[in-house]
Design a protein around this nucleic acid. Sequence first.
RNA 1: GGGCGAUUAGCUCAGUUGGUUAGAGCGCUACGUUCACACCGUAGAGGUCACAGAUUCGAAUUCUGUAUCGCCCA
Length: 1050
Amino acid sequence: MPTTNASNSQPSSDPQPIDANEIPNRFDHAEAASQIAAAWDAAGCSHAEVNPDKPPFCVVIPPPNVTGALHLGHGLNNTLQDIVIRTKRMQGFETLWMPGTDHAGIATQAVVERRLKEDENLSRHDLGRDELVKRIWEWKAQYETRIIGQLKRMGCSCDWQRLRFTLDDTCAAAVRATFFDLFGQRMIYRGKRLVNWDTFLQTAVSNDEVENVTQKGHFWHFSYPVIDAKPGEPTSVEIATTRPETMLGDTAVAVHPNPEKAFDKVESELRAKLADASDKEKADVEKQLEQLAERRTKMLPGLITLRDMAADGRMLKLPLTDREIPLIADEWAKPELGSGCVKITPAHDPNDYEVGLRQDLPMINILNTDGTLNEEGGKYAGLNMKQARKAVVADLDELDLLGEVEDREIELPHSDRSKTPIEPFLADQWFVKMDTLAQSAMDAVSDERVKIFPERYRKGYLDWLGEKRDWPVSRQLWWGHRIPIWSVTGIDAKAAKDLVAKLQKLPAATTGELKEQTETLDDGTMGVFVCLRGEDAAAQAEIESLGLVQDPDVLDTWFSSALWPHSTLGWPEKTPELDYFYPTATLITSRDIITLWVARMVLMGLNNVGKIPFDQVFIHPKILDGLGETMSKSKGNGVDPNDVIDKFGPDALRYGLARIATDTQDVRMPVQYECPHCGKLIDQTKKNRSAKTVDCKFCKKTFSTQWAESESDKAHSRAPVVSERFETARNFVNKLWNASRFTLMNMEGYEAKPLEVASLPLEDRWLLSRLATVTDQVTKGIETYKFAEASRILYDFAWDEFCSFYVEIAKPRSADEATRATTQVVMAHGLDTLLRLLHPMMPFVTESIWSYVGKAAPVRGVPVPAESSSMLMTAAWPQADASHHDPAIERQFAEFQEVVGAIRSIRASQNIAPREIVPVAIRTSESSQELLSPMKTSLESLANCEVITLGPDAVAFETDAPLSLSSIDIDVHVDLEKFIDVEAELARLEKLKDQVIKQITGKESKLNNENFVARAPEEVVAKERESLAELKQQLASVKGDIERLQAKSG
RNA sequence: GGGCGAUUAGCUCAGUUGGUUAGAGCGCUACGUUCACACCGUAGAGGUCACAGAUUCGAAUUCUGUAUCGCCCA
């Protein structure tokens, strides 16, 4: 049974032979993984402490949000972090991987509220704030456990003793300290701003949480009557809108201040476009120009009149209300669109809001927080937007003020969280001033104190920060860090002054834990705002007794996430951890949160600690489903890593993910349900991916999915979701396991001994050289985030070189007493290095094998053996021995491999049964003879042949199948006397001849090109000439072979 | 509308500074269970590198444009 010897007593340094029966021929990951994890845990392998004797290496986990379980995207993210972490740990760093989860304000509250509605038909208001928050904590507990369980099963070597949560006391202290500091620096301010209002969740959401959905809508034309129109002036103004109901909040109608110039501008833009338009576009642009000219003629006089009316202060009657609104001149009105006039609703449209600010217009909020109309809506109060729209349009029609209704596609913003339409809404919000903060974060990346890989992501980061938009941090939610501000509003100046005087006498104020600001509000009254630095119940009670009330809102989740690299290390306390581990080394994350999260961590780290939070950022690809869509909890296409682990094992999951992590593109992962009844695979589709149950199309039985919630759904067996893309990795784990098994079974009589490398046979020196190269490549690969490359190099080396050649050659060598001992030493060393290099990617299987190797060959290494550590996880990372690196040896071994390939190829084309031993003759130069002679046994074993002659004197057999390896000047001949199949042999030779002729033709035409010969580098030309000569020689030889064979067959 | 990326074998993807006949895994074909491994071995078939131009002696690779897809921003 596989186990790590960590649980054993001190490993014996006497080799103990391992019996074949002791190791099963499959790695039983289900059994082994939990034992190995327990052993790591018991030994405290992943715990880090401040350790001045070692350099620190720290990574903070991108805290998964507790909304739901992890999917393969997180699987990839965490696998890559663990690969880096394990490598660094083996390299001797004091390695801390800081784990934790994120409270994810809106997302988590939304799921819990949705569940509340579905299960109990209750709203959060029915439940009350405290009770809802309690329910969310329960949800959090459940999912945090689930998430951490998933990470642990994947083998993530986080320091679990340091587990944090963005809403725990440590993080809360950091949030309070930060907010207090920014408040004191006057970088936090309060403002009425138009926010994206989610009427379902009744909260503002950030721009980043809004997605635009294109929908079919209408463009309604209305007429607003002009009050006291003068002679010659129109008696009404026509406007057009996609949102008729918002007219109740109109406070102006705008016309362009210079319609003529506006037309000119549009026209010149179109002409510029025409100038460099393709033929195809030309017609279209010309048509637009025509229409514009027509429009200009028709509308310009009217627009000029309206502009003059606006200048003259003409008022309009807003229908359905008793309000009069001004006709104003503003550039937001587009003469080329609609009627050329636009209604202005500052409280309910972002552009109109800007106009309202410019023109100093009243801002009338017509909405309640739940999306129904308020008293400003007059008789429409209480209706929702949809009902109001219908009523408004009908009533305008009744008044004969409704004009044309056009069909039009409109972009409607939707809340990413609730999937309901967003209403622009005027609300009180707290903002963080971003100018200096953003600049500091831009500088950190511009001057490369923080390096982003792949580099192309720098641009997005810099562009986004460059806008320096202030950050609205209020969220009208109950789940999150409560904004630490208490306020009184609507008081006069004297009352404010008195209050401030009282506040300043409080103990908290004298210790600098309380700051207050006084502001004049929109309505002319005063407001006093107090911020408290810490959770100080006494201070809080005192403030509240003075009549101040705490802001009901909570902070944007990203506010606490932005502090993650330093809050988790104990900031604002000056902890030894912060001193030692901060700045962290690298951040590994996904591209969609570069701005939301990465940028904010940089600026908050600089503001709070005065140092960047990490030196490097690596952005990894995203995992897409079979349809090319990103995996997400809301779409239902996420795959649970546990499903993959159950079927393929944790090592296969990790290796499979690492292998696809290239930095060029995202990865498609078609997945299937595995029917729990018949075991067949059913493709996951858009239709079935979020279903709670699915009917198997093969056995027709019903199975449940990860979405099943009701008892009746859960009564069906659950189908795991799997992907055949992990089979390769699973097979690789098995290959490694079995190669190790073979190695271990041949360790009987093992004796550690120093070796003199120069005197070792070719294959040993080849292996050592390859180990040195691969060690370098893999180390460099991991250190530069080339995970796919590193994993590919290891796969190819382990499979195609270690297994297919070294182990195969070791078979006859192990059987021979004379060569056995050396073979064991080199093979143990090879396996040892391979296990170390593979450990970060495949920790479980390598740790398991390691314990066996520790028994069979406890002291090992080339050239000088040493006692190995009992646990691979804490063993040393291999150092490439530069003296072992030998390109000449690698070239010579390649010759050997070519000869083996040639014999195998002839055998296959002759359909010679694998068990038949064929006689071969190999013509070589004298130097190759010297090289290959000692390899004769290996050659015979690998190609299942008998070498009759080897050297310059070797000649063709009478019934001969030849293959000329002209590039290495070797001819291989196989005696076909017993096996001849003339037809097959002729076919093979003819095919070969055609191939060679094709190549010769290509080369000749290249070399006949004077330009090539004259302009290409000499060495390239020489190489081509040489290669052509070889090909010609090969052709002659093949032609001769064909003739001989034809003569023989007569 | 702007930015970033992708397009290579039936599928999923590699492809270094431009240079022999463009690679891998899966799938497919043929043969094979001699005791590490059938989650295996050996051999093989399969590609107009999205399209059109340009640069170059030479382009999957560099440049320009087009198409399609994806993501981000407005």
